[in-house]
């Protein structure tokens, strides 16, 4: 239906979404307002009872520890001496530490390398799988999911060997008669080198989620577009991507949050080096915590709380930028 078509459309089976209360009362007969209130309260009580376990668990395992962590961050904590109240001193230390900001920058750059790459690859692959036969699609789906079940520790070790002076990556470099590259020990290449296994680990799951989203888009949209002569790029741009808005939002938010918190790959592959080039925020906090001084305990606690705020802010920005909406067919 074109935008200029003004013919009224009747949906014979559709009932009004919210019928006027008066009409309902009239059909079912007028009721005592007290009874209505009682049912309303009963219905609320059931809802509260159902969410209560989760609220209690959240309170015990998230809200209380978070509040207590903030309280502790106001002290220099020692396990052997009385904790010393220092107010917001550690917040000043963390916020004025160039290493903290550098680690956030590293995390953001890593996320910007990994998340868009995963989304583009997943979109292309999911679109391709959709065109395959059932049997071929099943084989492809299983194949692309394999990296998701491989341990990230194992992946790190495999890629560590790939990037060695005599590794596979430098074998390819050797084909063009260039000198071996110190992939993991050069400032410019270390972070992209870690992003490659990051993409490899993440794109399988994203592809499957995206494929599920694509399969949810009514086939009639594509058929109409084909009749109108739309090519693959136009179908992707005008049908697939708008139809996947909520899926993309989910993958963006979770992808950015997870990528910013990447820890294992740099821990195993580079230890955060060279010269902090791969020192992601979590690795930075972890290395601060490992120091044996009371200062280190309070510092890493405060840095963790600030990272929590940063992650929350980034998620908020993404939510604002890509507002979610109900499915086109709902």
């Amino acid at each position: 239906m074109s935008a200029t078509d003004t013919t009224p459309v009747t949906l014979p089976t559709a009932a009004p979404a919210v019928p006027p209360p008066a009409g309902r009362a009239r059909r079912r007969g007028a009721k005592d307002p007290k009874q209505t209130t009682a049912r309303h309260l009963r219905s609320n009580r059931t809802a509260y009872l159902m969410i209560a376990p989760m609220v209690i668990l959240l309170a015990i395992f998230v809200i209380w520890p978070l509040g207590y962590a903030f309280y502790l961050s106001l002290f220099e904590i020692s396990f052997y001496q009385d904790a010393k109240f220092v107010g917001l001193q550690f917040y000043t230390y963390v916020l004025t530490d160039p290493s903290f900001w550098h680690s956030l920058g590293v995390g953001l750059r890593y996320a910007l390398m990994v998340v868009p790459t995963i989304l583009v690859l997943a979109l292309l692959l999911a679109s391709f799988i959709k065109t395959l036969s059932k049997r071929a699609a099943a084989i492809m789906k299983t194949t692309i999911y394999v990296p998701a079940v491989v341990s990230s520790v194992l992946t790190s070790v495999i890629f560590l060997f790939i990037y060695q002076d005599e590794g596979v990556a430098n074998w390819f470099v050797g084909l063009v008669h260039a000198r071996p590259i110190a992939w993991l020990n050069t400032d410019a290449t270390a972070l992209p080198s870690i992003a490659v296994p990051g993409v490899w680990l993440g794109f399988g799951v994203s592809t499957l989620i995206m494929l599920a989203g694509i399969l949810d888009i009514p086939e009639s949209y594509y058929e109409s577009a084909l009749l109108d002569g739309a090519n693959f790029r136009q179908r992707t741009w005008y049908i697939t991507i708008p139809g996947l808005k909520n899926v993309l939002l989910y993958l963006l938010v979770t992808g950015f949050t997870l990528a910013l918190q990447e820890f294992q790959l740099p821990l195993i592959m580079t230890g955060g080096g060279p010269v902090d080039a791969t020192n992601t925020p979590n690795l930075y906090i972890f290395n601060s915590f490992r120091d044996a001084t009371p200062f280190a305990t309070s510092y890493s606690l405060t840095a963790s709380l600030l990272l929590f705020l940063v992650l929350g802010a980034i998620s908020l920005v993404i939510f604002r930028a890509v507002s979610s909406q109900k499915s086109a067919d709902s």
Binding site: N185, T186, D187, G273, P274, V275, D276, D291, T293, F295
Partner: peptide, 20 residues
């Protein structure tokens, strides 16, 4: 002294080594 002091010096040597 705390290892942070040594780490700062080690980071500086690494910066010079790797051309940072």
């Amino acid at each position: 002294y705390p290892f942070d002091v040594s780490l700062a010096f080690g980071t500086a040597i690494e910066s010079a080594m790797k051309g940072k």
